[in-house]
């Protein structure tokens, strides 16, 4: 019994010497951020945090979009209000630009981590199995290509409804009219609908995966987190799809 404190003491001192001596990994001499970013676990955590930032934005974006069902005055008024957030502390559109920079940073972190981890993952299995069979769920298997589709869609979406470069109406300050004009072209509707289905799949695996990666999951929460991921994926897809479908069916003119 008397040996116990000694054992604990030895364990404590050994940890201390391990930290300060060369016995530690080379990673120990680098900064905490570098250690996290350079490990697979840490890079995934960066991906999870940036993904959750983007997911939070998408929920707000989707709710904002639904104002289209209240008419042009509501949606255009909402769009104008977004530019005044923070005034007079912030200047006109400042908040919008801050939000855009945060989103851009999140997309860059998310995509860089995804690219680097995917490269590593593919290198780790250089030879595949001859006996092929379906592995994991469809949502899980399509994360990488789904992410590429979403990245391409973001570019298209900004050209269509932010810079109005490819928008058929292109009237600044009139998002309602621009959205309606955009979805009157068949290709815009098709691109948008496909991207939103990809988004739903991405969120379905991504939300639960983020919780697991950040160590917030446990057996008791697992089912609730999966249900939450399904609900988020469904709500986002349905909410975003409601707008083009309403325009294409003539419910919103």
């Amino acid at each position: 019994m008397a040996a116990l404190p000694t054992v604990v003491f030895m364990a404590l001192t050994s940890e201390r010497t391990e930290r300060s001596s060369e016995r530690g990994t080379p990673a120990d001499s680098r900064s905490a951020v570098a250690v996290v970013w350079n490990s697979t676990v840490g890079k995934k955590a960066a991906m999870a945090v940036s993904g959750l930032v983007l997911l939070g934005y998408l929920v707000l974006h989707m709710i904002g979009n639904l104002k289209i069902f209240f008419g042009p005055a509501d949606l255009n008024g909402y769009a104008a209000w977004l530019r005044t957030i923070g005034q007079p502390f912030l200047g006109h559109e400042w908040f919008l630009w801050i939000a855009r920079l945060v989103l851009l940073a999140a997309v860059l972190v998310h995509a860089t981590a995804a690219y680097q981890l995917s490269r590593r993952d593919l290198r780790a299995r250089p030879t595949g199995y001859r006996h092929r069979r379906a592995r994991s769920s469809y949502a899980t298997r399509t994360m990488r290509w789904g992410g590429v589709i979403l990245a391409l869609f973001i570019v298209w979406h900004i050209l269509d409804l932010t810079t109005l470069t490819v928008n058929p109406k292109a009237e600044p300050g009139h998002p309602y009219e621009n959205v309606v004009a955009s979805f009157h072209t068949w290709y815009s509707g098709v691109i948008y609908c496909l991207a939103m289905l990809a988004l739903g799949m991405h969120v379905r695996h991504g939300f639960w995966s983020a919780a697991q990666t950040l160590g917030l999951n446990n057996p008791r929460r697992d089912r609730a987190l999966k249900a939450c991921a399904d609900l988020l994926a469904f709500a986002l897809t349905a909410g975003f799809l409601a707008v083009p479908i309403a325009v294409m069916t003539g419910a919103v003119k």
């Binding site: 990994t25 080379p26 990673a27 120990d28 697979t40 981890l117 993952d121 899980t140 995966s209």
Partner: peptide, 22 residues
């Protein structure tokens, strides 16, 4: 120190990362 060292060793062996496929 255990989790730090073991994850560093795991990464340096060339194993891939987790994508939660299960």
């Amino acid at each position: 120190s255990r989790v730090r060292s073991m994850v560093a060793a795991m990464d340096s062996e060339g194993f891939g990362g987790c994508t939660n496929t299960g």
